[in-house]
Design a protein around this nucleic acid. Sequence first.
DNA 1: ACTGGAACTCAATATTTGTTAGACCCCCGG
DNA 2: CCGGGGGTCTAACAAATATTGAGTTCCAGT
Lengths: 243, 243
Amino acid sequence: MALTEYFVRYLQRRDTLTDDDLARLRSVPTEIRSFQPGDEIVPAGPNKTRSCLILKGMAGRLHLLPGRSAQRVITALHVPGDFVDLHAFVLHGIEHSVVAVGPAEAEFIGHDELTEITENYPHLTRLLWMSTAIDAAIHRQWLVAANALRSSAHLAHLVCEIYTRLMAVGAARDYRLTLPLLQRELADILGYSSIHINRAVRDLRDRELLRWTGTDIEIIDWPGLVRLARFDPEYLDLERRRR
Amino acid sequence: MALTEYFVRYLQRRDTLTDDDLARLRSVPTEIRSFQPGDEIVPAGPNKTRSCLILKGMAGRLHLLPGRSAQRVITALHVPGDFVDLHAFVLHGIEHSVVAVGPAEAEFIGHDELTEITENYPHLTRLLWMSTAIDAAIHRQWLVAANALRSSAHLAHLVCEIYTRLMAVGAARDYRLTLPLLQRELADILGYSSIHINRAVRDLRDRELLRWTGTDIEIIDWPGLVRLARFDPEYLDLERRRR
DNA sequence: ACTGGAACTCAATATTTGTTAGACCCCCGG
DNA sequence: CCGGGGGTCTAACAAATATTGAGTTCCAGT
């Protein structure tokens, strides 16, 4: 199988790919697999030999804490086009697992291919590096949101970000999105109890900022949601630029 | 001025540098500057043409939130040897400023040099990439700590991490370290009020885990501190390995 | 249609954290 | 020697969030 177009679009959104770059990307052999909700796409651990991209659905980075209480923390959410565990290429492994949230499809690429790209395609290499740098910027924004926002605003921030990221790859429009997350999983992401997530959802509904039933969200008042969340998409680096 | 040895040590701790790699690193021209506590080392904004390494003291990544309350969040702390804003090389700029915490010294490197390295030194390129990937892993661990730990344990986690990172570059030993942070700044890092930070510091003292006066910390009970913080240095990727 | 489980909803209560206000202490300039 | 400012520390009270337990809805399987 050849590398699908999602990641190509992700890159072209931010830079111009040369014909050589494109040809090299399209020549990468990949394996595509499907996953059920909760399935482990990549287990935590050292010595990875490949990394994966999301094709359909969503994936999360799940950290399991040692100790009796078995706490779960999800430190990242990934949408189609995201090169989820690309960082495992330069690290000794990953300290978290990657799990499917909702039904999902992922595409695997061998690290030998990536090594060859870093040896001969410097521009492409910088773009791969950029992709991991954007993930890091998202991590920082999550830290900012966690420290500065109250539960409702914090939840609103997540909705704003995911909608913007889905829009950027053409996977959402008309202020509608599917968020295949249980309230319990939202709790693992935002660091609240699931009961408190429930309060926050109710609050956003009561303020008439959005409609939220099950996994379907319709944003009614985008400016209001953005204001409450103090959302500024700057950190997603969506501008086209020479890298 | 030639690139100082701190970053070289940072890399050699994790991989073996070839003579070519070493020679190229040492040929990088740099500018060294000193900063007073609170000084802005790098302003937030787009189109950066160089990035900086910490030589002495510490630096933080400061995010200022729009809005009347002027909230401050510090999303990262950097110690000597850290290539603080290397990610600005592949992004369109940085969405936060870099400020000195305590008196500090930093070394600046032009992005043209980095571009040349990515064109001709693939192994070195992967190591630079690794450095930003480790920063991202630290971001994730901070998210885990923020979501899973209570104030005292959260503060203990920060102390464990900083001590480990200082040890790794030879800037701390004998369970003693200098943390040039006001309690107000610790509040900006951990997301609590400064009064609550005070409570947490007192709590760690009362549990006889450490002595903490001003900026000087002496860890009395390292195993106890590690247990409370559930600290596992795995994410700092301190193993030597071919990349 | 029944049934069981899982998720969502809600209220009462406990714990954690924030806010306000002030005391203490040390350093430094007048 | 005195006085002011900033940082640290403490207490009392207020607000946010967690926990527990129970009721409700929804859906898959029988």
